[in-house]
Design a protein around this nucleic acid. Sequence first.
DNA 1: TCGTCTTTTCAGAAAAGACTGAAAGTTGAA
DNA 2: TTCAACTTTCAGTCTTTTCTGAAAAGACGA
Lengths: 203, 203
Amino acid sequence: MQAFVLHFGEMGSRWGINRTVGQICALLFLSGRPLPADEIAEALGFSRSNVSMGLKELQSWRLVRLQHLPGDRREHFSTPDDVWQIVRTLAEERRRRELDPTLSVLRDLLLDKVASPEDRHAHARMREMHDLLELITRWSEDIQKLETDQLVELIRLGGRVVRLLELKNRLPLIGRGGKAGAGDKADDSRPTDESSFDEDLMS
Amino acid sequence: MQAFVLHFGEMGSRWGINRTVGQICALLFLSGRPLPADEIAEALGFSRSNVSMGLKELQSWRLVRLQHLPGDRREHFSTPDDVWQIVRTLAEERRRRELDPTLSVLRDLLLDKVASPEDRHAHARMREMHDLLELITRWSEDIQKLETDQLVELIRLGGRVVRLLELKNRLPLIGRGGKAGAGDKADDSRPTDESSFDEDLMS
DNA sequence: TCGTCTTTTCAGAAAAGACTGAAAGTTGAA
DNA sequence: TTCAACTTTCAGTCTTTTCTGAAAAGACGA
């Protein structure tokens, strides 16, 4: 447990969240029961107030839930039981905090007039970035709608699709170069090379 | 350009990379041509040596390439032309730096003997975490094998699948047997409960 | 080889961030 | 209402990270 908690402390500090927060989260995750702040402070060797800060932060990430145990006035904290739930919450929160604001900045910038040829290039780059982030945002929103077991299957499916394509590439006699395929997405108007992929998949 | 660079500086500092590095990367991305270190320093208002550090860091992330322009002794730097390439490199590098070490720690910890019932629970949690991370690692390795346009299609496909399932749920007359799926979890190898998901998809 | 142009390194200044103890705030039972 | 149990806040300290200028190291042409 020691090692796990310390590792996630380190990991935490590579991300936005700091060591304290990482460790608290790891501890709560491993612990079989909700813990009160003072036990956390004792277990990790942090000051009580530091733990209080950390817990507040974790709550803002929706990673810990506060609950009251009968016969104990102290507040107890716990992470969700399901690892997948934790990861999903984390992903969603990161999207909200990082992707969304970035997209919003990009949208604004794309409204500006292009003047110099230097700007022209920069503008085009921003659009590419914008489109990419929008695609990912949309995808992650969709993903969030799935039940966890469906999500797991979708991930496995992804892997299988890749391996399938890979296999196909090794047997070039089957791969004819296809066209076809009706409109798709549309939102970015360019005639993406379309077809090939889903057609291959579905066949 | 100003705004874009500043924004990515901020974003950078929320991630592991620092403001300087984020700004340098953003600047190179927007700039239509490779830039020498001193131009970067001037454009961003950092000291020459700071830029040198930043570039070194960016190179360790494989996000910038060094090149020599004819007739100029200075080294020039540029990001890949393709946004997708950048994001993919970033993802791969993060996996290497964050997921892999974590998995390795978890694997080690899972070898330890379980003693107390407290440990029992912690052990189980670590296993869940391990399995999840392994699934994601595998998936991301698979994903990396695709050409960019295939990847884009796969992402779109994912979204479409979700919307399809969602639609199906809204028309319960079609949806026979809910949930399904016997054992889930567990490593891989065995014939995963298979069916339910992809069968639904393919039909 | 030297001299010039360029990059890297590094010790320490400056800034940012984490952490603490003390004090103020909150809550619920009596 | 008061008190004790508990939580939060915050000013200040300590730690870490970032950034700089000066100096060393490297590269190239003459």
